[in-house]
Nucleic acid binder design. Structure first.
Lengths: 143, 143
DNA sequence: TTGCTATCTGCAAACTTTCGCAATAAGGAG
DNA sequence: CTCCTTATTGCGAAAGTTTGCAGATAGCAA
């Protein structure tokens, strides 16, 4: 299971600088074990008696996403959620109506990512990959 | 291939009202055959010599997304793109670095959506479903 | 056609996210 | 340890998106 240090090392290896702000953001989302909005991360960071700016939080989160260390998720609540791949590769079933997210393990289903990689030279990030649709509750409520 | 009327009928069947603003938005994105930002849709609508508000455009686009008639896509350029399933179901390969989108037909790859539907009672929307990763160009530039 | 009612729109304000720029500081070289 | 270079931060402003509310109107019933 990847740890803060793993993320930090990966960033360092990629040539990025390790700053207290980045350490803090990584620590927070890696240990939360859930999806967090940029605002939540910022609040959490400020609790740790350190000043950190919202813009920096956004930049750090985007940095992690760009390098495949975290993923962005639109939960349809007007905010964007971020999460690390801390609890292993999985697929998100995102409901378009209520925005709820069901996580299923990628072992449950075999998406042939390898085929895509070969055919399109596209390097798929296995963590957090989303399928949109309507969840059972919403469907039942509508019927 | 779905047409404006199909979308309008679907909305009406779902109990929504058909307003000139909704017709306009649907007409615009269904005929564009590409991804459009909310701003582009608004501009286009205003060209058609009708007043329409940005808030209404957002609300209409979200309505379409919630009902599986269109999809939202984060292209990483600070704006959200919307598109109908006009040109058939397909998969988006979204690059996390440059934000470019490669569309591949769902015939190229068989994502076992049916399995997910059965196992999780989740009604997958086949149109526009995204896989994130790194495109060939960005990978080559990095190496 | 007319009237009714809940839905929808426009507006303005609030909120979320991005950007430019000057100041700061990480990390390597000496 | 000190200096240097350049990436990174914080700030304020701008851009993009959502929300609450009052007024307008689609669609139904008569």
């Amino acid at each position: 299971m990847p740890h803060c240090h793993t993320y930090l090392k990966k960033l360092r290896d990629l040539g990025y600088r390790i700053t207290p702000q980045r350490e803090m953001v990584i620590h927070i989302i890696a240990h939360s074990g859930r999806h967090m909005s940029a605002e939540e991360v910022t609040e959490e960071a400020k609790k740790r008696s350190e000043a950190i700016n919202v813009a920096t939080v956004y930049r750090t989160l985007d940095l992690l996403v760009e390098n495949g260390l975290a993923s962005k998720l639109d939960l349809g609540d007007g905010k964007t959620a971020y999460a690390t791949g801390e609890h292993g590769p999985h697929i998100h079933l995102v409901c378009r109506q209520c925005g709820c997210v069901t996580e299923i393990s990628d072992g449950d289903i075999s998406v042939p990512l390898r085929d895509i990689e070969e055919k399109y030279s596209f390097d798929c990030h296995p963590y957090h990959f989303s399928i949109h649709g309507i969840c059972r509750n919403c469907r039942e409520r509508t019927n």
